[in-house]
Design a protein around this nucleic acid. Structure first.
Lengths: 257, 257
DNA sequence: GGTAGAGTTCGCCTCTGGGGAACAAGCTTA
DNA sequence: TAAGCTTGTTCCCCAGAGGCGAACTCTACC
């Protein structure tokens, strides 16, 4: 790939966009019908109908008595996703280990399209319940994983992502302005790990460390626990060390291609 | 949904079909580039390019330095798939239990588009390694799950699937003709469970039982083990009973909607 | 600094695909 | 049982979408 410019607009194909709108609606509605989708999406029944036909013939969705749903082929596609991530098993082992060691939730995330996506999540024996699952995405500016990634991303990419950030108040201590974020990113880069002190979800604290391949960040590992259990000492002490150690384990076990 | 006729052709949208062809190629090739895909799929670079742009703006694929890959959003979609399957957790529990009890591989599958798709797989403590994973699909005629489903499907659907079957020789004892299959299906319906005696993979034997919701089959549970360990006695005795028990557990714990 | 190879853009022309309306097929009600 | 409602399906038409080829740009590597 000769040139990889940062996020250009380019020609897009409208009918494909409609198809994915339909697919999205099938994901989110419970077994929708043709008319239901037509109403919701503002297209004619005939249009929706042909899209559903197409998606079904691609075996991406399934038609059942009571409406359409996603097909299991999507699960297969998810397998391919994991296969395409280099050293997925190394990551899994390290994150499992980290969860065991700390007893909390441990996660691995990567940056995609300007937000953090969770690739894998492990729960330690005293881990709290959280809604996040593998595949879920979160803003970069309010999460430890996001800040760990952001702090070590090339400055042009960093700037691009920050410039598009929504800066919504998500937790009691969310960083809500650009200046504050840059300050925090600088601190993060210096100390080598990122923290989230109830910035994304009330009552939760996280620590995250970047995983690098040479000079570039390929992902980040984090630990998440209740603020009640994670004191400032742990935050910047033992816990931070564990997370960094896990990140290191991944880096060391990674087979560079 | 007023009418649900069996698999009609209907209008399909070509550009969406192309988009999925591209997506499939991204799944199967390792970080392909524009030109690579254009060559492989027989489309012009400009066409492929706009499709890739579209898929990327839908955040289904990601562009990296060395080519395109699937995005983690697919993992999220996989979560939705499981959410859309009624009583997924009941199935998981029952299959886990079955795997523990037998020590072998236990699986749950459903029929989709004329083949069996695995929804969930559990491995017992002496389970053999097999290539199958959740989301994978297999022919109906050569697997125990497939035959368990087929035997209890409405006769028109059964006929439709059988008429399209490829009847390839997959294992040493694969049923390779329609008559033989119907015969076996009748026996299956009568005894209440299906068997696979090295019909799909050499050296593997399976037993499967249907899971029903009222009169209709909603899926099937199976146990798979090496032929060396599964004797005829187990095959039609204890193992068959375990599998049927598991199917029953699922039926009983299912909350009908 | 020139060439080869990648990705990107542009404009043309065709034929696709979206919309509306008519049609068919089930349920429900009287 | 017939009428009426609602759903999915088909058909046709015409604007404009999208596939192609060629021209352009940008890197990387001699």
């Amino acid at each position: 790939m000769a040139n990889a410019p940062n996020e250009r607009t380019g020609r897009r194909i409208q009918s494909v966009e409609i198809a994915f709108t339909v697919l999205d609606a099938v994901r989110k509605n419970d077994r929708p019908s043709v008319t239901e989708l037509a109403d919701e999406l503002g297209h004619s029944k005939s249009t929706i109908h042909s899209h559903l036909q197409t998606l079904e013939s691609e075996e991406i969705i399934v038609r059942e008595e009571d409406g359409y749903r996603l097909s299991l082929q999507v699960l297969d596609m998810a397998n391919d996703v994991r296969d395409q991530i280099a050293n997925y098993d190394v990551i899994v082992d390290a994150v499992d280990e980290l969860a065991n060691e700390t007893g909390e939730i441990a996660q691995f995330g990567i940056e995609e399209h300007g937000h953090v996506s969770y690739l894998y999540k492990a729960r330690g024996n005293q881990a709290v319940e959280t809604a996040s699952r593998a595949g879920g995405k979160q803003p970069m500016y309010s999460t430890s994983l996001g800040k760990a990634l952001l702090a070590f991303l090339p400055s042009d990419r960093q700037e691009e992502i920050v410039s598009k950030a929504a800066f919504e108040q998500r937790g009691p201590k969310t960083i809500t302005d650009r200046a504050g974020l840059y300050e925090e990113l600088e601190a993060t880069a210096e100390r080598g790990y990122a923290i989230d002190d109830e910035e994304n979800i009330e009552g939760l604290r996280c620590v995250a460390a970047p995983v690098r391949n040479g000079t570039s960040v390929v992902g980040a590992v984090s630990v998440t626990g209740p603020a009640s259990r994670i004191a400032d000492d742990d935050f910047h002490g033992e816990l931070a060390e564990s997370v960094q150690r896990a990140a290191n384990v991944i880096e060391l076990n990674t087979k560079f291609s």
